Amino acid sequence: MLKLLGAALIIVAGTMAGWMKARQYANRPSQIRSLMQALKRLETEITYSFTPLPDALRRIAHQNKDPLRSLLMTAAEGMNDAMGLTAQESLHRALDQHWRHTAMKASERDVLHQLAYTLGTSDRRDQLSHMESAIRQLEAEEAEARDDQARYEKMFRSLGLLTSALIVILIY
């Protein structure tokens, strides 16, 4: 009876691990899409509303779900008078704190990291061109993420169950 319970726990744990890994592959394209939409909204705020960067980031953060909401709010809070960080420092700090909670990979982080160097430091036209470039790079990453999702999502779901079943067979 105890062996049966142990085997069931191993199978459940392995299956859940596979499903969690598969969920990362499923969440990555949608998170990249949300990030692109947030950057497009930021373009609009900079171009038409002339909204200060911290206020624009706060407004955009409220329109998104976590983990992107937390990332943008932390970046906006870092630029307030009490913290006194530059846009670059604030965004880098937010990336360091919240990136591990996303399903996105280092390539998307690098795009935001590079974008942070120009936010708030150059004229409006230059910032917009850098944001457009970042959006184009993210579109390419999204296409790659969709390919990875199609290729690996189902495989990891099955692999979790099969690996745990193999462990149970080898143990007993």
Rank of each mutant, 00 (worst) to 15 (best):
L91E: 03
S70I: 06
L68M: 13
T86C: 01
Q63A: 09
A61Q: 02
E89T: 03
T74H: 11
M79W: 08
T86H: 03
R58I: 08
R58G: 07
E89W: 01
M73A: 09
Q63I: 00
N64Y: 01
A94S: 11
T86P: 01
M83F: 14
L71M: 11
Q63E: 06
K65R: 14
I60A: 01
D81K: 10
D66I: 00
L91F: 08
N64K: 15
S90M: 03
A82G: 07
L71K: 01
K65Q: 13
M79A: 10
L95A: 06
L68D: 01
M83Y: 14
N80F: 04
M79Y: 09
L91K: 04
I60N: 00
A82I: 10
M79C: 12
R93D: 08
N80W: 05
N64Q: 15
T86L: 02
P67L: 04
A76V: 11
S90E: 02
A87Y: 04
A82N: 11
L57C: 12
M73R: 10
D55T: 12
G78A: 12
G84C: 06
E89I: 03
D81T: 11
L95H: 05
G84S: 07
R58N: 14
H62M: 15
M79K: 05
L72A: 09
M83A: 11
H62F: 14
D55V: 10
R58Y: 15
M73S: 12
A82K: 13
G84K: 03
A76H: 09
R59F: 10
T74S: 12
A76D: 09
S90F: 02
L95M: 09
L72M: 15
G78M: 11
